[in-house]
């Protein structure tokens, strides 16, 4: 149970003179649920971009299943089993909702270079896509263009696309950001369901701390790019450093 799946060692990235992520070393066990919290500009999303390969670190390394993946492209990491969703909604605007998810399913099934058969031939891709859309309560919108969705719906689509990849690791970047309050529980429900299946490792960035505390196995706190604390939700709640960071009392020297 406690085999480590993702590990970062002294992970650092600098933009010009600014150190966005500063020597973060963590280890995430298999099937673990980890949340990353921290104030704005703490480097949470940058840390995610390092994990998913959108950015490559200035220093340090990332291990996945014991394999060094520091130099892997995002495509390769997805195929290895690290999928992510984006905080800034990142879908295919002029394609239908169904097509957005179908592309993810197609990738998951490894159908990459088939040129001369019609895409509708793969009927099960579509049924599977609709299943995913149902899970995130978006199946009624399957024929709309993605750009015509409301913001919260785009977030749901984003999650459906990530789930459709069926990767071992799910990196969720503020999945509920920008959703209306009524929609949030549904999405949390989806995340809870995936967690209960018990075969996924989830790393999640969230602003609304209270919502994810009972879901998380552990919580890590980033502050000015540094790992401030890492522990069970309870430990984090009681951590004075964290409290002052969130209340704004802590200043970097």
């Amino acid at each position: 149970m406690m085999t480590t799946l993702i590990e970062t060692k002294d992970l650092t990235i600098t933009f010009g003179g600014h150190i966005a992520v500063d020597g973060v070393t963590i280890a995430v066990p298999k099937n673990h649920f980890k949340s990353i919290i921290g104030p704005n500009g703490a480097g949470k999303t940058t840390f995610f971009n390092l994990l998913s390969g959108q950015l490559s670190p200035s220093k340090g390394s990332i291990l996945f299943n014991g394999k060094d993946i520091t130099k892997f492209t995002p495509t390769k990491r997805t195929r290895e089993g690290i999928g992510r969703s984006f905080q800034i909604t990142n879908v295919f605007p002029n394609l239908t909702v169904l097509e957005n998810v179908r592309l993810a399913v197609q990738s998951q099934r490894g159908l990459r270079y088939t040129m001369f058969s019609h895409f509708k031939k793969y009927k099960d891709f579509e049924t599977k896509s609709i299943d995913w859309l149902k899970l995130v309560l978006l199946d009624e919108k399957k024929d709309s263009l993605a750009k015509n969705l409301a913001h919260g719906e785009k977030r749901k689509l984003e999650i459906a696309m990530l789930l459709a990849l069926e990767t071992e690791v799910l990196l969720l970047d503020e999945p509920t950001a920008g959703m209306s309050l009524e929609e949030v529980p549904a999405i949390l429900e989806v995340i809870k369901k995936i967690k209960e299946q018990g075969n996924r490792t989830i790393i999640l960035i969230e602003h609304k701390m209270d919502m994810i505390l009972d879901l998380s196995d552990s919580v890590m706190v980033l502050f000015n790019g540094r790992l401030l604390a890492d522990g069970t939700p309870n430990e984090i709640m009681q951590n004075e450093l964290v409290q002052s960071a969130y209340l704004g009392g802590l200043h970097d020297e």
């Binding site: 997805t78 990142n90 159908l111 990459r112 040129m115 058969s117 019609h118 793969y122």
Partner: peptide
């Protein structure tokens, strides 16, 4: 036929959002 094949659909995904296509696992 080609533009409606699985490959053709990926091409349109690239047109829409190259970065996202990459993170879906397409080269």
């Amino acid at each position: 036929r080609f533009t409606n094949s699985p490959v053709g659909r990926v091409l349109q995904a690239i047109r829409e959002n190259e970065q996202r296509t990459e993170s879906l696992g397409y080269q």
